[in-house]
Amino acid sequence: MRAATLFKLLFGVLAVVFLIAPLVAILPLAFTSSVFLTYPIPGYSMRWFNELANANVWRMSIINSLIIGTGTTLLAGTLGTLAALGLRNAGLVLPGLFRTVFLLPMVVPAVVLGVGMQVFFVHLGLANSYAGVIAAHSVVAVPFVVVSVTASLAGIDRRVERAAASLGASPFTVFRRVTLPLALPGILSGAVFAFATSLDEVVLTLFVAGPNQRTLARQMFSSIRENISPAIAAAAFLFIVGTLLIAAIAVLVRRRTEKMKQPAEA
Protein backbone atom coordinates (compact mmCIF):
# COMPACT_ATOMS: atom_id res chain seq x y z
CA MET A 1 0.00 0.00 0.00
CA ARG A 2 2.78 2.39 0.96
CA ALA A 3 4.72 1.49 -2.17
CA ALA A 4 1.61 2.14 -4.27
CA THR A 5 1.17 5.58 -2.74
CA LEU A 6 4.81 6.40 -3.30
CA PHE A 7 4.53 5.24 -6.90
CA LYS A 8 1.43 7.38 -7.43
CA LEU A 9 3.18 10.39 -5.99
CA LEU A 10 6.26 9.85 -8.14
CA PHE A 11 4.18 9.40 -11.29
CA GLY A 12 2.09 12.47 -10.52
CA VAL A 13 5.14 14.66 -9.93
CA LEU A 14 6.91 13.42 -13.07
CA ALA A 15 3.83 13.94 -15.20
CA VAL A 16 3.24 17.45 -13.87
CA VAL A 17 6.91 18.28 -14.47
CA PHE A 18 6.64 16.96 -18.03
CA LEU A 19 3.55 19.08 -18.64
CA ILE A 20 4.67 22.30 -16.98
CA ALA A 21 8.47 22.34 -17.11
CA PRO A 22 8.78 23.37 -20.76
CA LEU A 23 6.56 26.38 -20.13
CA VAL A 24 8.55 27.35 -17.07
CA ALA A 25 11.93 26.74 -18.67
CA ILE A 26 11.38 29.21 -21.45
CA LEU A 27 10.38 32.10 -19.19
CA PRO A 28 13.78 33.17 -17.70
CA LEU A 29 15.37 33.14 -21.14
CA ALA A 30 13.21 36.10 -22.06
CA PHE A 31 15.44 38.17 -19.76
CA THR A 32 18.80 36.90 -20.94
CA SER A 33 21.45 39.38 -21.99
CA SER A 34 23.03 36.85 -24.32
CA VAL A 35 22.13 36.28 -27.96
CA PHE A 36 21.85 32.53 -27.32
CA LEU A 37 18.80 30.73 -26.05
CA THR A 38 20.77 28.59 -23.63
CA TYR A 39 21.34 28.08 -19.95
CA PRO A 40 23.11 29.17 -17.83
CA ILE A 41 22.00 32.72 -18.34
CA PRO A 42 25.06 35.01 -18.30
CA GLY A 43 23.18 38.13 -17.24
CA TYR A 44 19.73 39.63 -17.16
CA SER A 45 18.41 42.42 -19.34
CA MET A 46 15.31 43.66 -21.06
CA ARG A 47 17.00 43.85 -24.44
CA TRP A 48 14.79 41.24 -26.06
CA PHE A 49 11.62 42.97 -25.01
CA ASN A 50 13.12 46.14 -26.48
CA GLU A 51 13.80 44.17 -29.61
CA LEU A 52 10.14 43.11 -29.76
CA ALA A 53 8.99 46.66 -29.31
CA ASN A 54 11.47 48.33 -31.63
CA ALA A 55 12.64 45.94 -34.33
CA ASN A 56 10.47 46.56 -37.30
CA VAL A 57 9.52 42.94 -38.09
CA TRP A 58 8.51 42.22 -34.53
CA ARG A 59 6.65 45.46 -33.97
CA MET A 60 4.75 45.12 -37.24
CA SER A 61 3.90 41.52 -36.47
CA ILE A 62 2.54 42.44 -33.05
CA ILE A 63 0.41 45.20 -34.54
CA ASN A 64 -0.81 42.84 -37.25
CA SER A 65 -1.73 40.23 -34.67
CA LEU A 66 -3.76 42.78 -32.75
CA ILE A 67 -5.56 43.98 -35.88
CA ILE A 68 -6.29 40.49 -37.15
CA GLY A 69 -7.14 39.17 -33.68
CA THR A 70 -9.63 41.98 -33.12
CA GLY A 71 -11.21 41.46 -36.52
CA THR A 72 -11.47 37.73 -35.93
CA THR A 73 -12.98 38.22 -32.48
CA LEU A 74 -15.66 40.52 -33.87
CA LEU A 75 -16.46 38.42 -36.92
CA ALA A 76 -16.33 34.96 -35.32
CA GLY A 77 -17.91 36.29 -32.12
CA THR A 78 -20.90 37.73 -33.96
CA LEU A 79 -21.44 34.81 -36.34
CA GLY A 80 -20.90 32.20 -33.62
CA THR A 81 -23.18 33.89 -31.10
CA LEU A 82 -26.00 34.27 -33.61
CA ALA A 83 -25.63 30.65 -34.68
CA ALA A 84 -25.61 29.42 -31.09
CA LEU A 85 -28.84 31.33 -30.48
CA GLY A 86 -30.32 29.71 -33.58
CA LEU A 87 -29.18 26.27 -32.47
CA ARG A 88 -30.99 26.73 -29.19
CA ASN A 89 -34.26 27.60 -30.90
CA ALA A 90 -36.62 24.62 -30.83
CA GLY A 91 -37.89 25.51 -34.30
CA LEU A 92 -34.58 24.78 -36.03
CA VAL A 93 -34.75 21.93 -38.49
CA LEU A 94 -31.93 19.37 -38.37
CA PRO A 95 -30.15 20.90 -35.40
CA GLY A 96 -27.71 17.98 -35.22
CA LEU A 97 -26.55 18.59 -38.77
CA PHE A 98 -25.95 22.29 -38.16
CA ARG A 99 -24.06 21.58 -34.95
CA THR A 100 -21.79 19.08 -36.71
CA VAL A 101 -21.12 21.43 -39.59
CA PHE A 102 -20.27 24.28 -37.23
CA LEU A 103 -17.68 22.15 -35.46
CA LEU A 104 -16.04 20.77 -38.60
CA PRO A 105 -13.44 23.57 -38.99
CA MET A 106 -11.94 22.35 -35.71
CA VAL A 107 -11.43 18.92 -37.24
CA VAL A 108 -10.12 19.57 -40.74
CA PRO A 109 -6.30 19.69 -40.73
CA ALA A 110 -5.07 23.25 -41.01
CA VAL A 111 -2.76 22.52 -43.92
CA VAL A 112 -5.61 21.05 -45.96
CA LEU A 113 -7.78 24.06 -45.27
CA GLY A 114 -4.80 26.31 -46.00
CA VAL A 115 -4.24 24.84 -49.46
CA GLY A 116 -7.89 25.24 -50.31
CA MET A 117 -7.97 28.81 -49.05
CA GLN A 118 -4.82 29.73 -50.95
CA VAL A 119 -6.32 28.48 -54.22
CA PHE A 120 -9.72 29.96 -53.55
CA PHE A 121 -8.58 33.34 -52.19
CA VAL A 122 -6.59 34.01 -55.32
CA HIS A 123 -9.80 33.63 -57.34
CA LEU A 124 -11.64 35.84 -54.88
CA GLY A 125 -8.95 38.52 -54.80
CA LEU A 126 -8.56 38.07 -51.05
CA ALA A 127 -5.02 36.74 -51.18
CA ASN A 128 -2.52 38.82 -49.20
CA SER A 129 -5.18 40.99 -47.59
CA TYR A 130 -6.22 41.62 -44.01
CA ALA A 131 -9.80 40.67 -44.88
CA GLY A 132 -8.63 37.32 -46.17
CA VAL A 133 -6.57 36.55 -43.08
CA ILE A 134 -9.40 37.60 -40.77
CA ALA A 135 -11.86 35.41 -42.68
CA ALA A 136 -9.46 32.47 -42.54
CA HIS A 137 -8.85 32.88 -38.81
CA SER A 138 -12.57 33.28 -38.19
CA VAL A 139 -13.27 29.94 -39.84
CA VAL A 140 -11.14 28.11 -37.27
CA ALA A 141 -12.14 30.37 -34.37
CA VAL A 142 -15.89 30.18 -34.84
CA PRO A 143 -16.34 26.62 -33.46
CA PHE A 144 -14.94 27.77 -30.13
CA VAL A 145 -17.46 30.60 -30.00
CA VAL A 146 -20.33 28.29 -30.92
CA VAL A 147 -19.32 25.74 -28.27
CA SER A 148 -18.83 28.32 -25.57
CA VAL A 149 -22.02 30.29 -26.22
CA THR A 150 -24.06 27.10 -26.67
CA ALA A 151 -22.86 25.88 -23.30
CA SER A 152 -23.82 29.09 -21.56
CA LEU A 153 -27.20 29.18 -23.28
CA ALA A 154 -27.84 25.59 -22.24
CA GLY A 155 -27.39 26.73 -18.66
CA ILE A 156 -30.28 29.19 -18.92
CA ASP A 157 -33.57 27.85 -17.62
CA ARG A 158 -36.13 28.44 -20.35
CA ARG A 159 -38.72 29.11 -17.70
CA VAL A 160 -36.80 32.22 -16.73
CA GLU A 161 -37.34 33.61 -20.21
CA ARG A 162 -40.97 32.53 -20.17
CA ALA A 163 -41.35 34.23 -16.82
CA ALA A 164 -40.10 37.48 -18.34
CA ALA A 165 -42.61 37.17 -21.19
CA SER A 166 -45.44 36.42 -18.80
CA LEU A 167 -44.49 39.56 -16.88
CA GLY A 168 -44.98 41.62 -20.01
CA ALA A 169 -41.61 41.62 -21.78
CA SER A 170 -41.72 41.48 -25.58
CA PRO A 171 -39.49 38.85 -27.24
CA PHE A 172 -36.81 41.45 -27.92
CA THR A 173 -36.92 42.71 -24.34
CA VAL A 174 -36.68 39.15 -23.06
CA PHE A 175 -33.56 38.73 -25.18
CA ARG A 176 -32.00 42.03 -24.09
CA ARG A 177 -32.85 41.90 -20.41
CA VAL A 178 -32.65 38.18 -19.65
CA THR A 179 -31.06 35.95 -22.31
CA LEU A 180 -28.18 38.21 -23.25
CA PRO A 181 -26.99 39.08 -19.73
CA LEU A 182 -27.15 35.42 -18.73
CA ALA A 183 -25.27 34.31 -21.84
CA LEU A 184 -22.69 37.06 -21.54
CA PRO A 185 -20.01 35.04 -19.74
CA GLY A 186 -20.20 32.44 -22.51
CA ILE A 187 -20.07 35.10 -25.22
CA LEU A 188 -17.07 36.74 -23.57
CA SER A 189 -15.19 33.50 -23.13
CA GLY A 190 -16.02 32.62 -26.74
CA ALA A 191 -14.56 35.96 -27.80
CA VAL A 192 -11.42 35.31 -25.75
CA PHE A 193 -11.08 31.89 -27.37
CA ALA A 194 -11.50 33.46 -30.79
CA PHE A 195 -8.82 36.04 -30.08
CA ALA A 196 -6.46 33.42 -28.69
CA THR A 197 -7.05 31.18 -31.70
CA SER A 198 -6.23 34.00 -34.07
CA LEU A 199 -3.15 34.97 -32.07
CA ASP A 200 -1.81 31.42 -32.22
CA GLU A 201 -2.76 30.61 -35.78
CA VAL A 202 0.25 29.94 -38.03
CA VAL A 203 -0.64 27.48 -40.75
CA LEU A 204 -3.51 29.34 -42.41
CA THR A 205 -1.50 32.54 -42.11
CA LEU A 206 1.35 30.89 -43.99
CA PHE A 207 -1.01 30.11 -46.84
CA VAL A 208 -3.16 33.20 -47.14
CA ALA A 209 -1.20 36.13 -45.69
CA GLY A 210 1.26 38.22 -47.61
CA PRO A 211 4.38 39.80 -46.11
CA ASN A 212 2.29 42.76 -44.97
CA GLN A 213 0.01 40.60 -42.84
CA ARG A 214 2.80 38.69 -41.09
CA THR A 215 1.48 38.01 -37.57
CA LEU A 216 3.39 37.50 -34.35
CA ALA A 217 2.88 33.75 -34.46
CA ARG A 218 3.97 33.64 -38.07
CA GLN A 219 7.02 35.73 -37.21
CA MET A 220 7.87 33.41 -34.31
CA PHE A 221 7.53 30.42 -36.61
CA SER A 222 9.98 31.70 -39.16
CA SER A 223 12.33 33.01 -36.57
CA ILE A 224 12.53 29.62 -34.86
CA ARG A 225 13.12 28.12 -38.28
CA GLU A 226 15.62 30.57 -39.62
CA ASN A 227 17.43 32.52 -36.93
CA ILE A 228 16.37 31.62 -33.45
CA SER A 229 17.00 34.30 -30.85
CA PRO A 230 15.85 35.08 -27.31
CA ALA A 231 13.24 37.38 -28.86
CA ILE A 232 11.26 34.14 -29.19
CA ALA A 233 11.46 33.64 -25.45
CA ALA A 234 10.36 37.21 -24.85
CA ALA A 235 7.36 36.71 -27.15
CA ALA A 236 6.61 33.40 -25.44
CA PHE A 237 6.78 35.18 -22.09
CA LEU A 238 4.12 37.61 -23.24
CA PHE A 239 1.97 34.72 -24.49
CA ILE A 240 2.21 32.78 -21.23
CA VAL A 241 1.56 35.78 -19.00
CA GLY A 242 -1.40 36.64 -21.21
CA THR A 243 -2.71 33.09 -20.91
CA LEU A 244 -2.42 33.12 -17.14
CA LEU A 245 -4.21 36.46 -16.97
CA ILE A 246 -7.03 35.26 -19.18
CA ALA A 247 -7.30 32.00 -17.23
CA ALA A 248 -7.52 33.97 -13.99
CA ILE A 249 -10.26 36.18 -15.42
CA ALA A 250 -12.11 33.14 -16.74
CA VAL A 251 -12.00 31.47 -13.33
CA LEU A 252 -13.26 34.63 -11.65
CA VAL A 253 -16.12 35.02 -14.11
CA ARG A 254 -17.06 31.36 -13.70
CA ARG A 255 -17.02 31.70 -9.91
CA ARG A 256 -19.32 34.69 -10.09
CA THR A 257 -21.79 33.18 -12.52
CA GLU A 258 -21.88 29.89 -10.64
CA LYS A 259 -22.60 31.66 -7.40
CA MET A 260 -25.40 33.45 -9.19
CA LYS A 261 -26.94 30.34 -10.71
CA GLN A 262 -26.58 27.96 -7.81
CA PRO A 263 -29.97 27.48 -6.18
CA ALA A 264 -29.78 27.80 -2.41
CA GLU A 265 -32.42 25.17 -1.75
CA ALA A 266 -31.78 22.98 1.22
Partner: peptide
Protein backbone atom coordinates in the same frame (compact mmCIF):
# COMPACT_ATOMS: atom_id res chain seq x y z
CA UNK B 1 -52.14 36.94 -28.20
CA UNK B 2 -48.42 36.62 -27.43
CA UNK B 3 -47.55 35.86 -23.79
CA UNK B 4 -46.43 39.37 -22.93
CA UNK B 5 -49.80 40.78 -23.85
CA UNK B 6 -51.92 38.42 -21.79
CA UNK B 7 -51.49 40.12 -18.45
CA UNK B 8 -51.56 36.96 -16.38
CA UNK B 9 -49.26 36.36 -13.45
CA UNK B 10 -47.37 33.10 -13.81
CA UNK B 11 -45.52 31.32 -11.02
CA UNK B 12 -43.30 28.71 -12.63
CA UNK B 13 -42.16 25.36 -11.42
CA UNK B 14 -38.80 26.11 -9.71
CA UNK B 15 -39.77 29.81 -9.68
CA UNK B 16 -37.78 31.01 -12.72
CA UNK B 17 -36.39 34.04 -10.93
CA UNK B 18 -33.92 36.16 -12.91
CA UNK B 19 -30.60 35.03 -11.44
CA UNK B 20 -28.75 38.17 -12.53
CA UNK B 21 -31.16 40.61 -10.86
CA UNK B 22 -31.72 41.45 -7.23
CA UNK B 23 -34.94 40.50 -5.51
CA UNK B 24 -36.22 44.06 -5.88
CA UNK B 25 -35.28 44.18 -9.57
CA UNK B 26 -37.08 40.89 -10.12
CA UNK B 27 -40.25 42.26 -8.62
CA UNK B 28 -39.86 45.61 -10.40
CA UNK B 29 -39.51 43.90 -13.80
CA UNK B 30 -43.21 43.61 -14.74
Amino acid sequence: LPPHRRNMGVVFQNYALFPHMSVAANVAFP
